[in-house]
Computed example of a mutant assay.
Amino acid sequence: MTTRWLTPEEQRAWRAYVAGYLLLEDAIDRQLQQDAGMPHAYYSILANLSETPERRLRMTDLAERLKITRSRLTYAVSRLEKDGLVRREECRWDKRGSIAALTDEGMAVLEDAAPGHVATVRAALFDRLTPEQVGQLEEIFGQVAQGFQGDGEGEAAPEDLPWRRRSSPCSGTS
């Protein structure tokens, strides 16, 4: 099998993506640690729960929204639960599943952190782009995500998607 090496243009684009992603994630994490005492992943959990009816979501559905493994989500929710920001509840329609629920305290923390988070995202990303580039960014990463998840026309999503994995390679749990 012959390796299809990246072209010089692809290599530059790849390295630009990696550098941009890592610097953006670092800026967001630093702001959230400073303002809310939590990493971006935890903020994302609170934000996603805040957007759902009754601020509750089944853990497997939350893992899919966040594009993370169920074991990583379980760990994060446990930490947020200790801080009183999230509460776990039994799933009435599936005894094997559980629900993550955003508490009033979690909502207050989210509301306090959101303005700084949005300002950081705006300054670090969107203020540097033209409206056309924002559309291109959405189109490009929408296409990338769709490629991993199937075409939506009956094609099954791969079982290797993070939220479908039985366990993460490091944790040994599901």
Rank of each mutant, 00 (worst) to 15 (best):
L23P: 01
L23G: 07
E25D: 07
D29V: 09
D29N: 11
Q31G: 06
L32F: 00
Q33H: 11
Q33W: 08
Q33K: 11
Q34V: 11
Q34P: 04
A36L: 04
G37H: 09
G37R: 01
P39I: 04
Y42S: 11
Y42H: 15
Y43Q: 02
Y43F: 15
S44H: 14
I45F: 13
L46D: 01
L46E: 02
L46Y: 05
L46Q: 01
N48T: 14
L49N: 01
S50W: 10
S50N: 11
S50Q: 04
E51F: 11
E51W: 08
T52K: 10
P53E: 09
E54V: 09
E54K: 02
R55I: 01
R56K: 12
L57R: 07
M59P: 01
M59L: 13
M59W: 10
T60Q: 14
D61Q: 14
D61V: 04
L62Y: 03
L62V: 03
L62S: 00
A63C: 12
A63Y: 06
E64W: 04
E64G: 06
E64M: 11
L66R: 13
L66D: 00
K67W: 14
I68W: 01
T69D: 08
T69V: 03
R70L: 07
R70G: 10
S71G: 10
R72A: 15
L73W: 00
L73P: 03
A76I: 04
V77E: 00
V77C: 10
L80D: 02
E81W: 04
K82W: 13
D83C: 09
D83E: 15
L85M: 12
R87D: 10
R87W: 09
R88K: 09
E89T: 01
C91I: 06
C91N: 08
C91T: 14
R92K: 12
R92F: 03
R92W: 12
W93C: 09
W93H: 12
W93V: 15
K95C: 08
R96G: 02
G97N: 13
G97L: 07
S98E: 09
I99E: 04
I99K: 01
I99W: 00
I99T: 01
I99L: 02
A101R: 05
A101M: 05
A101L: 03
L102N: 03
L102R: 02
L102Y: 00
T103N: 03
T103D: 06
T103A: 07
T103V: 13
D104V: 10
E105K: 15
E105H: 14
G106Y: 02
G106W: 03
G106N: 03
M107N: 15
M107E: 15
M107V: 13
M107A: 15
A108H: 06
V109L: 12
V109F: 06
L110E: 05
L110R: 03
E111K: 14
E111D: 13
A113T: 00
A113E: 00
A114R: 11
A114L: 14
A114E: 12
P115A: 07
P115M: 02
P115I: 05
G116V: 00
V118K: 07
